[in-house]
Write a protein that binds this DNA or RNA. Structure first.
Length: 170
DNA sequence: GCCAACGTTGGC
DNA sequence: GCCAACGTTGGC
């Protein structure tokens, strides 16, 4: 699909620089290996049921944006790889599926409530653990490290992005 | 609009 | 499994 074909919202102005995001996934459900092994290394990011996270997809995420792929709710939480936004947003199909754990009876195809985007594998990294992230002076501002933060999608500043890449080189 | 009850997240 | 933090729901 082309971004200009999305219903309901005007197209975003083109941007020169990709933005950066951190996206959490439970490796039991979808790990960085699962993403790598998916057809064309691409999977739809479904099941987001938080309005703030949805609004990031709807209003701010762009094709080509960089993604820190974070493993959560697992023995070794942390950044496990890099990915990229590869499509969308489009209505999240799981909301209309009564058999899906993400089914939302209050959402209709006429007025879909939830969105999905496509995420493409870029590369695996060594695991940059949550403890290592917390220990890095350059990452104290990282949104996902702030107390009480539970968002599955959070913006990452250019400075934070570069700091993560640098840590991954060590 | 208030707010108590409930559900979810996610590290530990 | 525990529990703190936070979002959502729904009665009033």
């Amino acid at each position: 699909m082309r971004l200009t074909e999305r219903g309901g919202h005007p197209p975003h102005p083109p941007t020169t620089m990709p933005r950066h995001w951190l996206m959490k996934s439970e490796p039991d459900e979808c790990s960085i290996d699962d993403l790598r092994d998916a057809p064309a290394g691409t999977l739809p990011w479904t099941g987001v049921r938080n309005y703030q996270a949805r609004n990031f997809m709807r209003d701010e995420m762009r094709l080509g944006d960089d993604v820190l792929f974070y493993h959560s709710s697992c023995p070794e939480p942390g950044i496990a790889g890099l990915a990229r936004i590869a499509g969308g947003p489009v209505p999240d199909g799981t909301q209309f599926d009564p058999a899906s754990p993400y089914h939302d009876a209050k959402s209709t195809p006429d007025k879909p409530r939830w969105l999905q985007i496509d995420v493409s594998f870029v590369r695996k990294t060594r695991l940059l653990s949550l403890a290592a992230l917390r220990a890095a002076p350059s990452l104290q501002t990282l949104r996902t490290l702030q107390p009480g933060n539970r968002l599955s999608i959070t913006p990452v500043t250019d400075t934070e992005w570069r700091a993560v890449l640098r840590l991954l080189q060590d």
